[in-house]
Simulated assay, not measured.
Amino acid sequence: METTLTMDKQSIMAKSREEIAQKLPEGKWSEKQKVALTCRILFAQGHDSGLAGQITACDKHSGEYFTQPFGYGFDEITTDNLLKVNKDLEVIEGDGMPNPANRFHSWIYNARPDVGCIIHTHPPHVSALSMLERPLKISHMDTCMLYDDVAFLAKWPGVPVGNEEGEIISGILGDKRAALLCHHGLVVAGRTIEEACMLAIQCERAAKLQLLAEAAGEIKEVNPELAKEAHDWILQDKRSKAGFAYYARRTQKECDFTV
Rank of each mutant, 00 (worst) to 15 (best):
T3P: 05
L5D: 14
K9W: 03
Q10W: 13
S11I: 01
I12E: 04
M13W: 08
R17G: 10
A21E: 15
K23Y: 14
W29L: 15
L37K: 00
C39A: 02
H47S: 09
H47K: 03
L51V: 15
H61K: 14
Y72I: 07
G73M: 10
I77L: 08
T79Y: 10
N86E: 11
D95N: 01
G96E: 07
M97W: 08
N99T: 04
R103E: 09
F104N: 02
A111V: 04
R112K: 06
D114N: 13
V115G: 03
I119M: 14
H120G: 03
H125T: 12
V126F: 09
S130K: 00
T143I: 10
M145L: 15
D148L: 09
D148T: 01
D149W: 01
A154H: 12
K155Q: 15
P157M: 08
P160N: 08
P160V: 05
N163W: 12
I169W: 04
I172F: 02
A179N: 05
T192M: 07
C197F: 06
A200T: 10
A200F: 02
L209A: 03
L211G: 00
K220Q: 07
P224Q: 05
K228D: 13
K228F: 13
A230T: 12
D232G: 12
W233Q: 09
S240A: 14
A242D: 12
F244A: 07
A245S: 15
Y247W: 10
T251E: 04
Q252H: 00
Q252C: 11
Q252I: 01
